[in-house]
């Protein structure tokens, strides 16, 4: 009887919590326990694979919104949001010209939580803006200066990748907006010097007298679109780039970017 009483008294939430925290399972997962002491708080930062991207301690100024605008973090979070919603959208979207457009209509009309498309699209736009603003802030605080020169360079590539991700994604709904935006955008490739058939120097690249190397079916634009106009092949190319190619590269560079932030002294501040 008394044993039962003991048992019951142990069932109070506090005691239960304590018991759980003492259990082997809990300790195997959360090495440190509830980070209530400063020591534990540091250990948490060191012990967690995600959190250890951050140093244990940061400059006060470095966490001020006024200073960082949080734009880098927002950009990364938007990238995660886009990955997640993009994954869901891939279940419903077929990158063929027959179905691309009607699948988007279905997402709007019928698919439960088709709002994922809205989140994906607006998130993508927001990411373009936030990445610009991140660059703007980094410049204005002079944070590209040594020792962060290389990381600035990585950041510039990431910015370009962000624009390319957005650009490739722009085509996928296969509506007039998409097709003509990509047509206008990709038409510029036609004018690539030497590599585009309307670019300067292209008609100098000939075999013998009059066998052109660069024609409308063998130039930079053709390589980009897989055809002479924005069609089925362009859709597939852009889809693969959008869903696999570019995110992989961006993910890899992001890892470098974050690692270099740590290596180069964390969030910048006056020396």
């Amino acid at each position: 009887m008394s044993q039962l009483k003991d048992l019951l008294s142990n069932l109070s939430p506090a005691k239960l919590g304590e018991a759980i925290q003492k259990s082997q399972i809990y300790r195997s997962v959360f090495r440190v326990g509830v980070p209530v002491s400063d020591r534990k708080r540091m250990l948490v930062m060191l012990g967690n694979v995600f959190l250890h991207l951050h140093p244990v301690k940061v400059r006060k100024s470095g966490i001020r919104l006024r200073f960082t605008w949080c734009m880098g973090g927002i950009t990364f979070f938007l990238f995660l949001v886009l990955t997640f919603t993009g994954l869901l959208l891939m279940f419903y979207y077929r990158p063929t010209i027959e179905y691309a457009y009607v699948d988007i209509i279905d997402l709007r009309e019928q698919v439960p939580l088709g709002i994922m498309r809205e989140i994906h699209r607006w998130g993508a736009h927001a990411m373009v803006i936030s990445v610009w603003l991140h660059m703007f802030r980094v410049f204005m605080t002079g944070s590209y200066k040594p020792p962060r020169e290389f990381n600035w360079g990585v950041g510039v590539i990431l910015l370009v990748l962000t624009l390319l991700l957005s650009f490739t994604g722009y085509l996928l709904p296969w509506d007039q907006l998409a097709m003509w935006a990509i047509t206008v955008g990709s038409n510029m490739a036609r004018a690539t010097p030497f590599a585009g058939y309307e670019g300067p120097g292209a008609n100098l690249l000939t075999l013998g007298e009059n066998i052109p190397l660069i024609s409308s079916t063998s130039d930079a634009r053709f390589a980009l679109l897989g055809g002479t106009r924005v069609g089925e092949m362009a859709l597939l190319r852009f889809y693969v780039l959008h869903c696999v190619g570019l995110p992989l590269v961006a993910g890899f560079l992001m890892a470098v970017h974050f690692w270099r932030i740590r290596r180069d002294g964390g969030i910048s501040g006056p020396l």
Partner: peptide, 10 residues
Amino acid sequence: ETADKVLTWP
């Protein structure tokens, strides 16, 4: 503020 470092967590 640079001199003052704060804990990342929390």
